[in-house]
Design a protein around this nucleic acid. Structure first.
Lengths: 109, 109
DNA sequence: CCAAACTGATACGGATCCGAAACAATTACC
DNA sequence: GGTAATTGTTTCGGATCCGTATCAGTTTGG
């Protein structure tokens, strides 16, 4: 699943994708937000605020705020855990899946 | 020079790199800042504020501020153009080259 | 020589984000 | 049952960034 790239390949790849993200009309997601989004979509659920904070090495408010922002954009959604009502389960959305599909096209195309 | 990736490969690649950038102690560069940095290092000089703004599709203050920030981090430097003193030439630095070398390792490793 | 054009930088009000600390709600445990 | 621990959220002051508009300095061109 991993890919080996030369230095020039790696930087050119990042350059073209970063440029595409900036020139895009949509508001840029920060690196942190994108990390959260990709974690939710690529790793197995459940995803809680605490887990995401630990995985990214940031504080919990960072996760809460990122979920607020991406929630408004409908890229993710939140739901209380019925088993343990302290937990919040972060869930995928159709819009989020489409967003990442387009991102993958930009990267891999 | 370009690389074709499957959707899963592309997203996993982005995921691991974004995670590495967040967990890194250094302050995260925004996507815009990284775009500017990569443009300076990958495309032929000279690079002016105006050119960079046009290339990224953003306003000039965005470039000025990004150069301020990355200048403090010593990732880029500025110099007046002697030929036309209205222009500012954006130049590479040793620290910037090292930063991108490590980024390339993260991407391609 | 002087007004127009062009460059990058700055001022401004508003939005967003940061980490630390305090908070309310829920659960665990003795 | 009641205290302690755990969860996600909110608040706070401070920092950063945004786009628009304006600015100062330079060059152009009649």
């Amino acid at each position: 699943m991993s890919v080996a790239l030369t230095t020039a390949q790696a930087l050119n790849l990042w350059h073209s994708v970063a440029l595409a993200m900036v020139k895009d009309d949509e508001p840029d997601l920060s690196v942190r937000q994108l990390s959260i989004l990709l974690t939710i979509y690529l790793e197995a659920p459940p995803h809680t605020v605490r887990d995401l904070a630990a995985k990214l090495g940031v504080t919990k408010p960072v996760i809460t705020r990122a979920l607020d922002t991406m929630g408004k954009l409908e890229l993710v959604s939140r739901r209380r855990d019925d088993k343990d009502k302290r937990n919040v389960l972060v869930q995928r959305t159709v819009k989020g899946a489409l967003y990442l599909e387009r991102l993958a096209d930009t990267i891999g195309g």
